[in-house]
Design a protein around this nucleic acid. Sequence first.
DNA 1: TGGGTTTGATTGAACGTTCATTCGAACGCC
DNA 2: GGCGTTCGAATGAACGTTCAATCAAACCCA
Lengths: 207, 207
Amino acid sequence: MSATKTNQPTASRGRPAASGERRDEILAAALTCFVADGFHGTAVPQVAKQAGIATGTIYHYFPSKEAMVNALYRKWKEAIGRRVFTAFPPAAHVREQFRAVWHEMVDFALAEPDAFAFLELHNHRSYLDAESLAMENRLKDFAALMVQTAQKRGEIKAGPTSLLMELVFGAVTGMMRAHWDGRFELTADTRRVAEQACWDTIAASPG
Amino acid sequence: MSATKTNQPTASRGRPAASGERRDEILAAALTCFVADGFHGTAVPQVAKQAGIATGTIYHYFPSKEAMVNALYRKWKEAIGRRVFTAFPPAAHVREQFRAVWHEMVDFALAEPDAFAFLELHNHRSYLDAESLAMENRLKDFAALMVQTAQKRGEIKAGPTSLLMELVFGAVTGMMRAHWDGRFELTADTRRVAEQACWDTIAASPG
DNA sequence: TGGGTTTGATTGAACGTTCATTCGAACGCC
DNA sequence: GGCGTTCGAATGAACGTTCAATCAAACCCA
């Protein structure tokens, strides 16, 4: 009948998880919570509960809640970046390059809806650090190169490269949001229409 | 030497503000805070400080923080809705209707950047009530009617009406975000290019 | 191989802080 | 004088974070 302020043993502990596995479980739980309630709207114990672990364990893997959200952001920003970069056909015509990148992005969004929603549907500025924000630009610089090259050839509209890119990024984001909200269904046919529509956005005017 | 737990008088109080004025001041302060830090990232005393009033005064005008954010959302969603509806030329050709609506939205975004950013750049689902969310749909139903009519005439691409609308809404949102992030400048020329690009998104394919 | 030791992952109660909200006193105006 | 408005300290719940205790596994030397 110890009345000490220390904890009493209740369940199994001390068993280490396979390396890196526990960390990923925490990030997965955090993703679910952040997508539902946002960063500030999610409590750390809530993430722990979602992951099925104790609150303290989170701090064994991340020094702070902020470090955790930054790790999560980088993980998925890197994932989508690698996918797009890998799918990019350097030798193909711009129209083909665009199609490949566009479908890769949508494939990613459909395969990892929470990750896509977290990356694109939230305002991260108040808690992401400089390095995390820099990753965003690396992806966009790559896309800018593709667009700029095609602009010089007259295959894509003249005007600020960033404008054209953001119009398409924004369109895809809006499309995915509406799809998840159930405002329309994203069938193979619909995808084809949407891809063509996005290309028409930046394609050199028909005259 | 009163050691009571009540407060001592320090500054002027009790002076009533003109009717409705104080309420608007609070909403303006809340908008600034919510855009910067998000709803959950903003403390009520922070809003009070921004408004230059005491914390308690906020609760004279709003029963809770949640009621406040809902009032803010409705105020600006109604404002942009009224502007778009007023600017809409019912007798004009679809191309002209689209141009009018598009520029009205961008005008609003430039005139009220915080309001636009708050409405479109944040994920509201966790704190908006049903009535607030319903306002969103009323605006979109109106736009859907314009698009659907033109689709039947073959002036706009075939496909889910919502898809085409969301592509354009998303594109405009992405464009404004990039503009405010300083990724390009939104000059009169750029606006013209962007408007045409958005029209090309939904316009019936050149063939 | 076996018994003692070290390692480090895990726990959850506790801590100090901050949050949304309350409330009684103070104030200006009718 | 009383009513509507304003104030800001008080309140208790919830927050992010800490940490001593715990135990399973890995390790070590016989």
